[in-house]
Design a binder for these strands. Structure first.
Length: 644
RNA sequence: GCCGGCGUAGCUCAAUUGGCAGAGCAUGGGAUUUGUAAUCCCAAGGUUGAGGGUUCAAGCCCCUCCGCCGGCUCCA
């Protein structure tokens, strides 16, 4: 068998042995030794054995430690080392699964007692010893029967369950020293290659994520090829902690969630409310410009409305319970769509009127289980930047394209230029005909292609009423957040018997698009706080300027300056307290005010101002008029691409 | 909801084996009149998340509940 390895040359193997056999030859090349290989889009390791001679020539792409894929090998091996360490320290522990994940790895392990933070320290120490032992890994293919026998003897009940469900006749196992695990790989050559790792946390996790299954302990960790990368990652975790919107929200007095008011219910404090107002005003303005019509609808409605819409059938576990009043049942709304249906149904609609686009910043209430609430990102009452578009089928693609255009316009405005986009297609249980689903899915794809956007398909993950596009935005720290969603709905127009009159005077059913661009204002602001680290751009800063007086003598001049800014519509605060300038700067800096305007005797005499930016730049003796005209230019939503 | 951890002044955090609840910041008063990230002094501030129990004595130990944090699951 011939192996062609990109940039490394050609190698030969006669009998079916693992790739390790060619390792000595590669070592002779005195080049970096690959971590593993990519073979037909799959990651394989040195332990991999090509068993048939039918493939005479095999092309392999080497994967080096600089390649992102290499982390999969490292972390997967790290998770085995973790499992081995736990088994050595706690022999009665039973192993669940232990994959490599985005930022590290975990292993789910059953044990009679919970693992504590101190246990993690000991486990980590034992892991270091296993790394020092530099145990070579071995891969073996065995039959299912053999595997069942092996793991039965080891008492690994969870592994038995996994093996029974595997479709293949043969399964692979990896071993290192005395430790054996069911695993399809890929792995490193030996445990000694795991250089920099750290265990991070432990928490409960149901076996296979199912609530009636037993709970295992999930130990999380991360691993890198160098100490430096590990250090950088830990630094990033610190940075994430510093930017936590719950912490900044308190420090900057943006919002509060009070035990006495209720879990998951947000109170916007004046500064946070102001940011929200600025975004809302802009949002409304843009929507009106783009052919949407603004509506307002109530927060509760008769419960029967939700019977017609189908929410009581498929959404009830997310709804607050009903309220009885004068023998009528009312329901707090979990969604805005039924209300917009009635806006549509105010009169007989003609094909000429379509598309109709109704938008609303609609506050909805959804019951979320107590354990999942999280700051602004997961709440029980939130305001969607919602809209429902009613259109003809032949308008679907164009409408979807317009929505995408709008969503990207908004996201760019806030500096989000990278996205992950997913199309969710027809699930097993669905309404409407397969044909109309196919046409809608095609419309979604075409709309994305019209905007030159890459996407992935989530097969079968659509809601039962129609396919959808979900958009995840990437923030400055490289994290992804789901905000925007665009959903096609064949169900609700039918349930409410929506029609329009066509050119031929017949009745037709419109298609409805649900869409939220920012998602919910609560979540979006939470993401924004973290993205900006609380330092909002000038147009959104709750306090744009702070006037700092040097001494009490300068207060009247300071007041005059403040008035001029206020007259131009800027948001100004003054700090005329009898304190040192340093102190006032420190405070303004903590408040993340974009510009500190300093007035002292010198400025007063020259009739100027001195400005310090929150980045620390100092501009002395500016003419007020010059600074004002600069600010006027800056006081607009930021657009990275003016052509949008 | 489940598992583990946590809950002390407005905020951030101390309080040894169970032995008089304390500091910094913020707040109020006073002194000082200040030049680019914290001037000094004084004062006030608490039913230690709530309720119950053990004890001569509970912030600390036990039970129940509430909330928060990290996960599981779900999603805007």
């Amino acid at each position: 068998m011939k192996f062609k390895i990109k940039n490394l040359g050609e190698f030969y193997l006669n009998s079916p042995t693992s790739l390790k056999s060619i390792l000595p030859e590669i070592k002779k090349l005195k080049k970096e030794i690959p971590v593993g290989f990519k073979y037909q889009e799959e990651l394989i390791d040195w332990h991999y054995t090509f068993n048939s001679s039918s493939e005479k020539e095999v092309e392999l792409e080497p994967i080096f430690s600089s390649d992102l894929n290499s982390l999969e090998y490292l972390r997967h091996t790290a998770s085995h080392i973790l499992a081995q360490a736990v088994k050595e320290l706690f022999p009665s522990a039973k192993l669940g699964i232990g994959p490599a994940i985005e930022d590290g790895f975990y292993y789910d392990i059953y044990y009679e007692q919970p693992f504590k933070e101190e246990d993690l320290i000991n486990i980590e120490k034992r892991m270091k010893k296993i790394v020092e032992r530099n145990l070579p890994l071995e891969r073996k293919e065995i039959s299912k029967e053999e595997a069942l026998e092996l793991f039965k003897n080891l008492g690994e009940d969870f592994k038995l369950e996994l093996i029974k469900e595997l479709p293949e006749e043969k399964v692979t196992i990896y071993s290192q020293g005395d430790f054996v695990d069911l695993c399809k790989g890929p792995h490193l050559l030996s445990t000694g290659q795991v250089k920099a790792f750290k265990l991070l946390s432990v928490s409960g996790a149901y076996w296979r994520g199912k609530e009636n299954n037993p709970m295992l302990w999930r130990i999380y960790g991360t691993a890198f090829f160098s100490e430096e990368e590990l250090k950088n990652y830990l630094k990033r975790l610190e940075e994430i902690k510093k930017r936590d919107h719950r912490k900044l929200g308190k420090e900057l007095e943006l919002f509060t969630i009070e035990e006495d008011i209720g879990p998951g219910l947000v109170v916007w404090l004046p500064k946070g409310a102001l940011i929200r107002k600025l975004i809302e005003d802009f949002w409304k303005e843009v929507h009106l410009q783009r052919g949407y019509q603004l509506v307002y609808t109530p927060h509760i409605a008769l419960r029967d409305l939700w019977k017609i819409s189908g929410h009581l059938d498929f959404y009830i576990e997310n709804m607050f319970p009903s309220m009885e009043l004068e023998s009528k049942a009312y329901q707090l709304k979990p969604m805005n769509c039924p209300f917009h249906i009635y806006v549509y149904n105010q009169k007989r609609r003609s094909y000429r009127e379509l598309p109709l686009r109704f938008c609303e910043l609609g506050t909805v209430y959804r019951f979320e289980r107590s354990g999942v609430l999280h700051g602004l990102l997961r709440v029980r009452g939130f305001t969607q930047d919602d809209a429902h578009i009613f259109c003809r089928e032949d308008q679907l693609e164009e409408e979807l394209t317009r929505v995408l255009d709008l969503v990207i316009y908004f996201l760019k405005l806030f500096g989000f230029n990278e996205y992950k986009i997913f199309i969710s297609t027809r699930p097993e249980k669905f309404v409407g005909s397969p044909e109309i689903w196919d046409r809608a899915e095609l419309a979604l794809k075409k709309a994305l292609e019209n905007k030159n956007l890459n996407y992935e398909i989530d097969p079968g993950e659509g809601v039962f009423y129609g396919p959808k596009i979900d958009l995840k935005i990437k923030d400055v720290l490289g994290r992804f957040w789901q905000c925007s969603t665009i959903q096609v709905d064949f169900n609700i127009p039918q349930r409410f018997n929506l029609v329009y009159v066509g050119e031929d005077n017949q009745f037709y059913r419109p298609i409805m698009i649900h869409r939220a661009l920012l998602g919910s204002l609560e979540r979006f602001l939470g993401v924004l706080i973290e993205n900006y680290a609380g330092a909002f751009p000038f147009w959104l800063a709750p306090i744009q300027l702070k006037i700092l007086s040097l001494t009490d003598r300068n207060i009247p001049y300071g007041e005059k300056v403040a008035e001029k800014f206020k007259k131009e519509g800027f948001r100004v605060e003054t700090d005329f307290r009898n304190e040192k300038l340093n102190y006032k700067i420190k405070i303004a800096q903590q408040e993340k005010v974009p510009y500190m305007v300093i007035v002292g005797d010198k400025e007063e005499i020259q009739n100027t101002i001195s400005v310090r930016t929150r980045k620390g730049e100092v501009l002395n003796s500016l003419k007020l008029e010059d600074f004002l005209s600069q600010l006027k230019k800056e006081n607009k939503p930021y657009l990275s691409d003016e052509s949008l």
